[in-house]
Structure formats: structure tokens, C-alpha cells
Nucleic acid binder design. Sequence first.
RNA 1: GGGCGGAUAGCUCAGGUGGUAGAGCAUCGCCCUUACAAGGCGAGGGUCACAGGUUCAAAUCCUGUUCCGCCUACCA
Length: 878
Amino acid sequence: MKEKAYDPKAAEERWYAAWLEAGAFHADPARPGEPYSIVIPPPNVTGSLHMGHALNITLQDVLLRYARMNGRNALWVPGTDHAGIATQNVVERELRGEGVSRQELGRDAFVARVWKWKEQSGGTILRQLKRLGAACDWDRERFTMDDGLSRAVREAFVRLYRKGLIYRGRYIINWCPRCHTALSDLEVSYAEEKGALWYIRYPGQSGGQGVVVATTRPETMLGDTAVAVNPKDERYAERVGTTLRLPLMNRPIPLLADAMVDREFGTGAVKITPAHDVNDFEVARRHELPSVRVIDESGRMTADAGVFAGLDRFACRDAVVAKLKEEGLLVREEPYLHNVGHCYRCGTAVEPSESMQWFVKAKPLAEPAIRAVRGGETRIIPSQWEKTYFEWMENIRDWCISRQIWWGHRIPAFHCRSCGKTMVEPDPPSKCAACGAEEILQEEDVLDTWFSSALWPFSTLGWPENTADLERYYPTSVLVTGFDILFFWVARMMMMGIEFTGKAPFRDVVIHALVRDARGEKMSKTRGNVIDPLEVIDRFGTDAFRFTLVALAAQGRDIRMSDDRVEGYRNFMNKLYQAGRFVRMHVDEETPRKLPGELPVVDRWILSRLQRVIDEVRGGIEEYRFNEAGSAYYQFVWHEFCDWYLEMIKPALLPSAGEEERKAQRATLLHVYETLLALGQPFIPFLTEELWHALPGGRGLLYDRPYPVADAAVNDVNVEEDMAHLMEVIRAVRNIRSELNIPPAKKVEVRLKGEAEEIAFLRDHEEILRRLARAEAVAYVDPDYIPVQDATAVVNDIEVCLPLSGLIDFDQESRRLKKEIEKGNAERVRVAGRLANEKFMANAPQDIVDALREREAALEQKLAKLGKNHELVSRYLS
RNA sequence: GGGCGGAUAGCUCAGGUGGUAGAGCAUCGCCCUUACAAGGCGAGGGUCACAGGUUCAAAUCCUGUUCCGCCUACCA
């Protein structure tokens, strides 16, 4: 039973194992070669492979394999991220199933439990990366919570603290009442929601009409400690300084003036809730107002909310509104669309709350990170993202890094129980530095996961030790990632990298787009339109999938993934595979790998074309224009190598051909094919490795071979032109046959009409012409030959005539020629028009004018010939 | 409110520095031609969103408009 089509599965397992076996992915700093390093964007340890990863990993793998084959000392560091909140949520959910809460379990037992979960389930995504073919150095796998990285985190924290770049304080932060933790500004995503704007009257303390305020959150009024108006607002000027009575709570609160208030909005009077609003918090600071916390960490009303204590914040909103209505203090209620922040992990509406947290002072860190990009130390590609980067960096705000969860790096701050002194040390102190007491408690909070991720490019290489890896592979060559974590991660790595190593962590930052579904919609679990990469791989093979991603990865544009596309590229994989079968039929152990000095034209042609495609593919990869590299490769392999070259050498490979000629052609065939395999290895590693080993002669792994380099000396413009002409002639014959419905089985004679020297090249390659045009015979006729009963076409200087007496339908041929003439004439008119334009002639560069002149002459000649032939044919019209 | 991106063949999209519009899929013919029907050969199909401008020349550069996306922002 002979194999018909390529079966990827077996090859994929075999070759990934072979690469690992050979230690091919392992990087050794001691080895020579200019370093090329990439750190993987560490996927969440809870994660499983999705399309975004697949694209991200594929692009990195292309770059890495390319670098490696170019002799670079290449390293790709893999690993995962501990994903604090997400992982804690997963394990808590598991515990809930067992009827236990994490509080019941206790901190240490819970953390141990998460570790156990990580050991069992945490490796999923890394195993999936292997199916994609990722050439990661698995000996260097890292986890943000492992010992080395944890040490790096503590070290970084302590250094920043000592420099005054980390501080602790009471501020308003975003609080997730479900996750029970603070979030950074970035971890809140805003969504418009339909709500209402309630107008509430706050009466004067000593009677009087008081002031009407407008709010979207009436429940927070229970914590109001003032009402503010703009100092320039004449409507309230007289009343500023008086005291109002806070409804429902019956608390006296001042009416004060603050420039922050917008006179245009609502009534121009704002209720001030310092404990639950950022702006109000600032106002309160300026005016030394007290702060009353009315919503607790679970989103329920505190004891300070009076009769509403214990209610959920949203239930409380309704209750407050109802009560106000009852008391006649609700002046008005209008529908209102506003932005509500939600926890990016669980979607719960975030509650801004005042609390004690740790922060990174971001400005001083951002400045050098901005300079690094401005100065070109780091490039962001495509460059339009630089603007986004600058904008964010220039308006950066301090970063809340403490989280009230258990899974993560516990903040290395230690509080003395007796005197309250806080010590920040990489290792726990045994006694208080101030009072000597020995009862010391470590800070309960852990760090934001992104804090450890920010150190990833150097912590994975051994920092703070000055390791050989760090020395050799830092800064890394390129970071490949999605725009969604530009701020979360890239910006912070830039800041931390420069702060701790003095150098920006990457030479290039490549930002790729989103993978969407076939209809262009974002894939999401809730939408149910998620395409599982592994399923695609199962159906079409990894290489086809990878090639699809590469071919569609145009800079700055989202990718629409669909079965159709993958199927198309799966067919391409098969094409390459079938070509391999053909090659194997004709080469053997004897076939020389060194090309003979004298080569047939066809060989010189394909070699010349090959140099170009090598340049295109290399250029595409080097400029991160992956789609261009991919399509250059696709186009060449299929439409030049397979469609033309293989077809053209068939006669020469037949036993009837001379032995010497056959040998030479075989050497070229093998050479070109092997070059194509090497050229394709970064994109389609499994198939190319498989095909490589199927060829005669064992020469190790393709992964280890040098990447093809174009040899300009092999380029031959004349040969390319001659061949282009030959192909045109073949196409002309095929076209006539097809248009006139002459079945392929019907052999025809082809007469080539033209001057002897114009025909010489065609005459030398008659066999190719005969075969590809399915011509029984080729005749060469003088320029005065009259194609009386022929179908004709004009190709450059010659005419292609097919004597078809008795077969030909002259009506049809007449129409065909007429169509040709019309097409040609339309173009001639355009060209002539431009040439007649004086301004064009005066201003256009000479080469453009010359080219156009030539074009005009050629068109005129062609039209003259076509016209004459059309006339001939017309005589026979019925 | 700011910022960014998109609008090109029926569909999905390519088209760095302006110089005769391309691919894949789909469509329509004809072919089981001995690597490949997951294939071969041929064909049809586009005032490059709209309006101005710069230029000898604009899909490409500039301005404006209209629709789509996305990111960002403390307007209660």
C-alpha cells in the first residue's frame, strides 16, 4: 500500500522527540555564536493553550529557529506565571466543592494546597507548547514562584523600598469585593452601564432649602462628610461655609468650595464620600475632612451605614432611594449611562475603597523607560505602538502592588509587634531593629503577580546573581507579545529592567494582533466561538496550522482563523510532501550534492529564482513581516518550483535523456529541494525535518543545518527573461486550446513565427514546449508565413500559430482575437495618452519614460499582428 | 473627551520609500497528463469608502467627511 498523502501525526511526535534527544534546544553560554535570546511571555499556570498563545509561540519559534540556523547562540526560556488571583480562585473553587473555605484551611495549608495543584495541573500549557513545536530550552524552565525568582522578587522589592520607590500608605484603591483584594488601575476594566442620576436634597442644618446634589451611587451618601461646589459658582457662593444635614444619617456636614467641581455637571454640587471615591478622597485631604467607610470588603454596608448596615451595596442603593423618596428628599431621577469598573478576573463591580496598601512610585522608573524607546535602544514594532507606550508612560500613576490574597510572593516587610517598626529585608529579621523585641510578624499581603513578571527577562537568567546566562543572554533580542499586555507587562519590564540592570530588557518588542474567529469576532468562552488550537492541529497538522498563522500575521492586523484557511495550507503541506516523493523517485545515494559548473538553462533559471526567494524569506523574517516571508515561500514552492520547474525537467529525467544531462538535473533538483526544506524549517519544522530525512544520505537534523543564504552570483536576469518568454508562449498555446475547447488529448502542431534569432531560444527548448503545451510538433516559420486557418496569439516578438483547419470554429476564434485586441488597445490608448502629456515627458524620470515608450512600441506591434490575424480569420466567418 | 487602526475582486485579506492593482478561498469551463483530485490547465471578476488637495503621476502623501473596530480618561 503506497502512502498517498502526508500524515503529520507520526512525524510530529518523532521529530520533537528527536530534537529533544539531540539536546538541540539547549543553549550553552560557553558555545560560540552571537547570542540570540527570547524569554517567553509566561502563560498563566492555570491556562491552557488558546489561539493567542499559538500565534505568539509560533512567531517566536520562527525567529528562534531562524536565528539558530543562522549560527546564533540561541536561547528561548520557557516558563509559567503563578497568576495569583486566577490560581487562588481555581483552588478555592475546588475547595468549595469539598465544602471547605480557605479560611478554615488556614494560610499555610492553603498555599500548600495550591502548590499541589500546580504540580499536578500546572504543566498543561507547557506540554501543549511542545505540540506546537516550540524550540524552548526546557532545561531552563522557570516559574515565577520558584526559589530563584522569589529571591529576585524580594531583592527587587527591598532595593526599590530603600530607594524610596516603594511606599506604604492609605489611599483609595480599586477593591474587588469578590476576590477580596486590591487591584491595580490596569486590572479594572470599564464598561458602560445603564444607571440613573439621582438628585438628592441635602437640607440646611438650620432649616432652609439646602443644596441638591446629583449622584449615580446614592448608597455612598451614608458615608458623605461634605458637599462641594466650585468656588466660582455664584449660585452657591453665599452658602459656602454653611452646614448641611446629611439625610438618613442626620449628620451635619459642611458645604465647601473646591476647584475640582465642574459647574456644568448636574446641579454643580457634589457629595463627598472620601472613603469610596478617588476624587472625593483628594478633596477630603485638601479640606481635612473625616472619612467614613460604609462598604466593607465584601461589598456589604458597614455598621457606620446606620439602619442599612448589613445590606449588600446594591440592595442598599434601592433602599436608600426608597427612603429618600419617602422623606421627600429625592428631587429627581433620570436615566444615565455611565462607566462602571469591573474586576478583570471575576467581573464583579469594583468598589473604590480607602485602605492601607503598598505602591511603586512609577514616575522615576518610567522616565528612563521612555528614553530607552525614544533613543532607539528598544524598538517597538509596528512603531505606531510607540505612541501608545509613550502616552501611558508619560501619564503613569503609582502602581498598587499589594494584594490581600495568599497565593503569591509575600511582601518582605516585617512588623515589630511591640514597637510597630516596619523592616523591609530580603530575609526575615530575628529581632526588631529598633527595640530588639523578637516577636516579628511578616506582612500579610502578597505582591501583584505582574511585579514578578516585570523581572522575568532577567530573573529567569539568574539575577540578582551575575550568572553566565545573564552575562551572555541579557538584554534579550526580542520580545513577542500581544498589545493587550503592553502596559501590564512590557512597560513594567522596561522600567524594572533598566532600574536593576541598567539596560532595557529587549532589543525589539514585536506586538502582534489578535486571533479572531472566521466572522471576525473576538473569541471568548461566553460567546462560545473559541477554536481550540489543539483541535485544529489534530485535524490538519501542526505545520499547516503554524503556516496559517504565519501567512496571516500581517503587522497590525487581526487574524481571522477559519478551517478554510488552514485547509488551504494543509494542502500546501501536502504539495511539498508530494514534491518530495517526486524528488525521491529521481535521486539516489549517487546524486552529487555539488552542482556541476555547466548547467542547463532550466536549472540556471530555478537557481536564479531561488536566490530571490531566499532573500525574500530572510527579509520577511528579519523585519518581522512574517506574512511576506510565508507567502514568498508558498508562491515559489507551489507556483514556480512545482508548477514549472518540476514539469520542465521531466523530459530531461526520462531514461531517454542523456546520462550526463540527467545527472546534472538531478543534482540541481536535489539542491533546490533541500534548500527549500531548510528555508521552510522555521515555519514548518516537522514536515521539513521529515522530508529532509527521507532524502538519501544521513546528514543530521535539519534544525542544525545552516539557513540558506542567497548567492547573488547565481542570479541571471537574462535567463529569467528567456524563461519568462518561454512560459508565455506555453501559456499562449494553453490559452488557445482552452478557449477553443481543444481537448488535452488532441495533439496539435505549434508554429512559431518570427525572426530566426527571436526563435532560437524556443527552438533550443522545444521539448519543454512540446510537453507543457501538449504539442505534437513544433514548426518554425518565417515572418512572411500567413496563418490562414490558424488560431493565433502574439507573445513579444513572435506569433504563436496553431493550424487548426477543420477543428477550429472561426466565430469563436474571431471573438477571442477581438477580445485580445480590445484589451491591448485600451492599454495602448492609456500609454499613448501619458506619452502625449508634455508635463509628464518633462518631469518624469527617464527610466519611466523609456519603459513606457517600449511598452507602446510593443503594444503597437502586437496589435498590428493581432489585427492582421483577425482579418484573416474573419474571412471564414459564416 | 483624547488616541490608534480599518474601509481594495463575491468572501478573507496582501500591497516598506508615489510609476501599468495581487494572493487564498469561492465561481465558471476543460482534464483521472505516470509527485500530488488535499491535484493540473484555462477564464471571469476591482471608478482601491466619499469629497477635496499636492504631483507629470495617488490604493499609496496631505486635509476633511461617513461608517466600523479597539485602547485610554476621576466628570459626581
